[in-house]
Every structure is written in structure tokens, then in C-alpha cells.
Simulated assay, not measured.
Amino acid sequence: MHVLVVEDDPSMQELLASLLKGIDSQVHIYRADTVAAGINFWRKHPIGLVLCDLNLPNQESGLTLVKTIREKNAKLPIVMITGSGDRATVKSSLQHRVNEFIVKPFEPASVMERLQRYFDNDKTTPDHAPKCGKSLESFISDVDAVLARLTLLPGAEAALQTLNRDDKPSALDLAQQWQNDSAITTRLIWLANSSLMRRSGRALTTLREAISAVGVDMALSQVLALSLANKNQLRQTKLQALSEVYAEQTQKLAESAALLAKQLRVSVANCYTAGLMVRLGELATLEAIQLYLDSGGEATDEEIESAVQKHAAHYGNRLKFKWRLPIELRERIGATYATTQGEVKPELLLMRLAACLSSNANHTAEQEKLCSRLGIKIQELPPG
């Protein structure tokens, strides 16, 4: 089945995606965080079920999406997600032929049971997708047009936007927002008790304690890591395999950068975040290729590898501009590939050193030179 999830909260998106995957591991999930993006997906793909939040950003209502769909399709199942189950809300939605409601907060097992019947009754198949009519190279070369059609890494974009805000949420705010997300909770509690972050002998067991211990910036970076490593949007085997490779590479680089940052007493979260972003272009290209395949296109494994190698840098640069990444973050990401001859900023030098360590465990002349410039002994380097 192809399911459209229209929800602006990244953690809720992830939870719903997990529930859908639990019902059917082969489900195709399209994610949108605005009415316009939702309508775009519905028009271009053989959607068999819509899950839509009632209240969306900029005072948009999910009912706008419902009205648009119902003008063309009276039978498509639409499930409304809302934080308000009052009579007026229910009555208004039923008038627009919403099939049923999920009221937040909810029990995941109960929601899975309710959604199961839509999968049992599904009549759509991937064969309904229109043929693309273009080669992979022709399709993927139009970077701006492709990016405009993707709901690309929504959790990553949201985490980055929050990271870059001056008025960041408190540990309590984040704990309340993520309390129903088991993946985030598990990761943050593990991190808070790890050797990288642990500052006391007492084990931390709650989400709020973990966020307070690691700090808001590092907590948001962990959500970024989970979002970038999420391969739910990718259904083709080769794309999934490449996604796993890139996720492993960036995680290794981010951890090396964080250990060096801790050793040199610079911002651990800043360096960790930059490490995670190094393969952003590759991940974006993979999702672009999936969009091409969803449009009816075909590609061999060799063509996929070639497309990623050729277009990743361009996709990465366009996304950095689209997401308005701060210049400092772009510099840290760029430093993983090379630093200038006269570079003296410790954060940039350590990012390059972390990249060397994560890709080559053997000590090299470049590593020795970077250690010298940073004032550390090569024997003190963290493991690669």
C-alpha cells in the first residue's frame, strides 16, 4: 500500500511511520508537513490511505486537504489525527467525509489495530504509478525541480532549524515533545550514560534527565542523526544498502569529531552535527532516485551508483542553501574534505582530523601534522 502521512511534527511522523511499517513492512510512505505538499503527493502517486493532522503550520487545517481529495475521490480512506476529540471537531470533520479519528496522545497498539483494516481492503498496487518517460540522468540533473517535489528528510530539517534558533526549547519542552518516541528516548538515555557524556556515577533513566545531561544542542543532534539514518523513504534494495553505508560512515565521523572536541574543549554538539551532515548530498540523491523510480522510471545498480557519485555534491550544496545552514556549520562540513594551508581554527582542523581517523585507522603524515597544529600527541588520538 501507498500511504500519505501529512503531519508537521517530525517525532509524530516517525511514530506513524513505525506503526505503518509494523502493519506492513513493504508499505510505501510519503511524508508531507503542509497541505500543499500533501496535495502534491496525492496527485502524483497511487495513494491508498491518508493520515492527516487536523492542525498544520501557518494556521492551515487538514480539512483543506480532505476537501481537495473529496472533490475527486469519494472512496479514498482518510484518517484524521487531532489533539481535540470534542464534538464540534468531530461533527465538522464528518461533514467532509473523514473516515475516522485518532486522538493524540494514543496507544500505538490500538492505532495499529484500527489501521489494519485499511491494509486488508487495499486495492491499489505500485503498477498504478505513471511511467516517467525520462532517463535517470535527465530526471536527476534538474536538481531544483526534483528538490521541489521531495518532502526531503523532514525530521532532519526540523532538527536543524531548531538547532540554529537563538530561542531553543528547554529540556522539559523537548522531553514533553518526544515522550512517546521510543527511538529518541532510547538513544538519548544511552548517550547520557555513555563515556562521551557521562559526568557522574549515577545512571540516568528518564528522557528529561538524559536531555538535561547531554544538553539541548546535543539532544537535537541525536534527532538529526536518527532522521538522516532513516531509510523508510527508500524502498529499492540498492538505495537502502547505500543509505546504510552512508549512515555508518557519518556516524563514525561524528563520533570521532565529538571525542576530539571533548578532548580539545570545544563544542561537542557543533562538531558532532557537522560530522552527521557530511553525506547530506548522497542521501538527498538517493531520495531523488527513489522519486524517479516511483514515477515509473527504471535504473540498474550501476546507474544508481554513477548518479550518486556525479550529483551528490550538487544536491548537497542546494540543500545547504535551501535549509539556510549557518556559514560556521558549512565550514565545519567542508573541513572534513580539506583545510586551507593557513587554517588555524581548532574546530576546522579537528573536523579534518576526525575524517582522517574515521576513514584510515593508520597514522599518516597528515594526521601527525594536524595533531601538531592542534597541540595534541598522536598517541592521544581517539580510536578511528
Rank of each mutant, 00 (worst) to 15 (best):
V3H: 02
V3S: 03
V5L: 07
P10F: 14
A17C: 11
S18I: 00
L19V: 13
Q26E: 13
H28I: 15
I29F: 02
Y30V: 02
A32M: 08
D33L: 00
A36M: 14
N40E: 12
I47P: 03
E60I: 04
E60V: 11
L63T: 04
R70V: 08
E71K: 14
A74T: 11
V79L: 01
G85Y: 15
Q95R: 15
N99F: 09
E100K: 12
E107L: 09
P108K: 10
N121I: 04
D122G: 04
T124S: 09
P126D: 11
H128I: 10
P130K: 11
C132I: 05
G133C: 00
G133E: 02
K134S: 14
S135I: 05
E137Y: 01
S138P: 00
F139T: 04
I140W: 09
T151W: 01
P154I: 02
P154W: 04
R165E: 13
K168M: 07
S170C: 09
L172C: 11
Q177T: 09
W178T: 00
L191M: 10
S194Y: 09
L204Y: 06
L204S: 04
T205F: 12
T206D: 11
L207D: 01
I211Y: 07
V223E: 12
L224D: 07
A225L: 06
S227D: 05
A229M: 08
Q233C: 06
Q240I: 09
L242Q: 14
V245M: 03
V245W: 06
V245Y: 10
L253D: 02
S256G: 13
L260M: 04
Y272T: 03
G275N: 01
R279T: 13
A284W: 05
L293M: 03
G297Y: 00
E298P: 01
E303Q: 12
I304W: 02
I304P: 08
Q309N: 15
A312P: 06
A313H: 06
N317L: 14
F321I: 15
K322Y: 05
K322F: 14
W323C: 08
I327Q: 08
R330L: 12
R332S: 13
A335T: 08
A338Q: 11
A338E: 11
T340V: 12
A355F: 11
N360A: 04
K369Y: 12
S372F: 01
